[in-house]
Nucleic acid binder design. Structure first.
Length: 290
DNA sequence: ATTTAGCGGACTCACTTTTA
DNA sequence: TAAAAGTGAGTCCGCTAAAT
């Protein structure tokens, strides 16, 4: 922390406004070293305390989401007020956002109960044990809980299953990646710049929407080819990106087991189609597809 | 020497309030 | 009352410090 830089007014783009540097220097000189030292101390202490108190903040939020109350009026009132007060107490705004997200997730997940319709692989005891282990593992890490709070059910299930089965604990970066593939809110656009290298992903999304079933996918592909030809290379890489992204698994998980089996059968017929395609085009040297 | 955690700031988006 | 300005929430990303 440098007091002179801190108090010097900034330009629109955040760089220091050079016109004010000499004045800022005079102000700092007049205030004196003791002032600067004390402010530095305040900064260090508050930063430290905020870090130290994070888990207390988390527990308050967990409590907020654990008490039953009317959602529309009471809960939203408390959410708003507690958010403001946490900021007033000394948590930074972005920290409060994380605490709220993490706490809500934790509370919701703790109150999840066993449902034999959904969980076919385990008993109620196993389920409870798995849940406790999962919460215990991730409780101490607010950022990880926060990432989890922004994923859909498929991804959360994966994380908790990986822990139960292989003792795998996800790093924050891994969770972030998983979240990008399985976001809870597909249309979230906040804090994200409109273009830049996101162009690829945004191209992918509409294709995912139109390709809900294989039938639609075939139609759409044909249309693309006839109306506005897309290069073979681009078509192929788009296909593999779609498969590799895991989006299909994600959508599949939303169906009943019977419906899933049916869709898998549809995909199987696709294998035959692919094989036919490859053998027809044998003359063009085709490298193996794994 | 790399990888990971995590903070803080710039930025976007959705609302709300003010202004003309 | 429509447009502009302001506000608040929440995301992404660069950076430092810690861990491995």
């Amino acid at each position: 922390m440098n007091l002179k830089q801190l108090i010097t007014p900034k330009n629109e783009d955040g760089s220091v406004d050079h016109r004010y540097i000499p004045i800022a220097q005079s102000i700092v000189d007049l205030a004196g070293e003791r002032v600067e030292a004390q402010l530095r101390k305040l900064y260090a202490a508050t930063t430290n305390l905020e870090k130290e108190s994070a888990s207390a903040g988390l527990q308050l939020v967990i409590a907020l989401f654990s008490i039953p109350m009317d959602e529309r009026f009471e809960r939203s009132k408390f959410k708003k007020h507690i958010r403001e007060q946490l900021q007033e107490i000394g948590f930074k705004p972005s920290k409060v956002s994380k605490l709220m997200g993490a706490g809500e997730f934790y509370a919701d997940y703790s109150s999840c109960t066993f449902n034999s319709d959904f969980d076919l692989e385990s008993t109620e005891d196993e389920y409870n044990e798995k849940r406790e282990r999962f919460l215990g593992e991730y409780f101490n890490n607010i950022s990880k809980l926060y990432e989890l709070s922004r994923m859909n059910g498929t991804a959360i299930h994966r994380v908790s299953t990986d822990l139960a089965r292989d003792n795998k604990v996800y790093s924050q970066a891994e969770l972030e990646k998983l979240r990008q593939i399985y976001p809870k809110d597909v249309y979230e656009r906040r804090g994200r710049k409109p273009n830049r290298h996101h162009v690829q992903e945004t191209n992918l999304l509409p294709s995912v929407v139109t390709h809900e079933s294989l039938k639609v996918m075939e139609d759409a592909a044909e249309e693309n080819v006839t109306r506005q030809p897309e290069s073979a290379h681009s078509l192929i890489s788009r296909f593999f990106t779609l498969v590799a992204s895991g989006v299909i698994e994600q959508r599949l998980a939303e169906y009943t087991p019977a419906a899933q089996a049916h869709l898998i059968d549809e995909i199987k017929t696709g294998i035959t189609l692919l094989e036919d395609f490859v053998s027809k085009n044998k003359t063009v040297e085709v490298t193996s597809v794994n």
